[in-house]
Amino acid sequence: KTSLNPNDLGPLPPGWEERIHLDGRTFYIDHNSKITQWEDPRLQNPAITGP
Rank of each mutant, 00 (worst) to 15 (best):
E39A: 10
N5V: 11
S3V: 05
L43D: 10
G50D: 14
N7T: 13
N32C: 06
E17D: 02
R42G: 02
P14L: 08
G10N: 15
G10Y: 02
P11N: 09
R42Y: 00
L43K: 12
F27M: 12
S3T: 09
L43G: 11
T36M: 08
D40H: 09
F27H: 09
N7D: 14
S3Q: 04
L4F: 13
L12K: 03
G24A: 02
T2M: 09
G24M: 00
T36H: 14
Q44H: 09
K34C: 08
H31Y: 04
D40F: 03
N32A: 05
E17W: 00
Q37G: 01
T49A: 10
D30Y: 05
K34T: 08
Q37C: 08
D8M: 06
G10T: 10
F27Q: 14
T2H: 05
N32D: 10
I35D: 10
N5Y: 07
S33N: 13
H31S: 11
N5C: 12
W16L: 03
L43S: 12
G10Q: 06
T49D: 11
A47Q: 15
D8Y: 08
A47K: 08
R42S: 02
P51M: 15
G50P: 08
F27T: 11
I20R: 13
P41H: 00
P46I: 09
P6V: 14
T2S: 13
N32W: 05
T2P: 05
F27S: 11
I48V: 15
G15H: 04
G10K: 07
N45W: 06
P11A: 14
H21S: 15
I35K: 14
P41G: 01
H31C: 10
P13Y: 13
S3N: 15
T26W: 02
D23P: 04
T36D: 03
G24S: 03
Q37P: 03
I20P: 07
G10P: 05
I20G: 06
P11G: 08
H21C: 14
L4D: 11
G15S: 05
L4H: 07
W38E: 14
E39V: 07
D8H: 08
T49R: 12
P14S: 12
K34H: 11
N7F: 11
N45V: 11
T36V: 07
P46L: 15
W38R: 09
S33L: 08
I29L: 09
G15N: 13
E18L: 01
G50Y: 08
L22G: 15
G50K: 15
D30W: 02
T49G: 12
G50I: 03
D30N: 15
L12H: 00
Q37K: 05
S33K: 14
E17R: 01
P6S: 15
H31Q: 08
D30P: 00
P51L: 03
K1A: 01
D30G: 02
S33P: 02
L43E: 12
T36N: 04
P11H: 02
N5G: 09
N45A: 13
T36Q: 05
W16V: 03
T49W: 08
D40E: 02
H31E: 07
P13M: 01
G10W: 04
Q44N: 11
G50W: 10
I29C: 10
W16S: 04
I35Q: 14
E17P: 00
L22E: 15
P14N: 05
H31F: 03
D23V: 00
Y28T: 02
R25T: 12
L43R: 10
N7W: 04
T26P: 12
R25G: 07
N32K: 13
K1W: 00
H21G: 15
F27D: 07
Q44C: 10
D30K: 05
I35M: 07
D40S: 03
W16N: 08
P13F: 02
W38K: 13
K34W: 03
D40L: 02
S33T: 14
H21L: 06
T36K: 09
I29T: 09
N5S: 10
N45G: 12
Q37V: 05
R19A: 06
F27C: 12
W38H: 10
E18N: 00
L22D: 14
D8G: 11
Q44Y: 06
N45Q: 11
R25Y: 02
A47Y: 14
S3M: 08
Q37H: 14
K1I: 12
T2V: 05
W38C: 08
P11D: 13
S33R: 14
I29G: 03
A47R: 13
D8I: 08
T36W: 03
I20T: 15
L43F: 11
F27K: 13
G15W: 03
P46H: 11
P41N: 00
I29F: 14
L22K: 15
N5T: 08
I48T: 14
G50A: 14
L22R: 14
G50M: 06
N32G: 11
E39S: 11
H31P: 05
N45K: 14
E18V: 06
R25K: 10
E39L: 06
P51W: 00
N32M: 09
G24W: 00
G24C: 00
H31T: 14
T49P: 10
L12M: 10
P41M: 05
D23W: 01
N5Q: 07
Y28P: 07
P6Q: 08
D40R: 07
P11M: 07
Q44W: 07
Y28C: 00
P11F: 04
D40N: 03
N5I: 07
S33E: 12
W16D: 05
E17L: 00
Q37W: 03
I48F: 06
K1D: 08
G10L: 04
S33C: 10
I35A: 14
L22I: 11
T26E: 04
N32Y: 07
E17C: 04
N7R: 12
W16F: 06
P13R: 01
I29K: 13
R42A: 02
G10D: 07
Q37N: 03
P14G: 08
W16T: 03
G50R: 09
T26R: 13
Y28K: 06
L22A: 15
E39M: 07
Y28L: 01
P41E: 01
Q37F: 05
I20M: 10
P46M: 15
T36G: 08
K34V: 02
F27E: 15
K1L: 06
I35R: 14
L12G: 00
L4V: 10
T49C: 07
I29R: 07
R25F: 03
E17T: 02
S3G: 05
K1Q: 01
S33Y: 05
P14I: 07
R25L: 02
P13N: 04
H21F: 04
I35P: 02
P51N: 06
H21M: 10
R25C: 05
A47W: 06
R19H: 04
D40Q: 00
D8A: 10
N5R: 06
D23S: 13
P41D: 00
A47E: 13
D8N: 14
I20L: 13
A47N: 14
T26C: 12
Y28S: 04
R19Y: 08
Y28E: 04
D40G: 01
N5H: 13
D23G: 05
I20N: 04
N45H: 12
G50Q: 05
T26L: 10
N32H: 06
I35T: 14
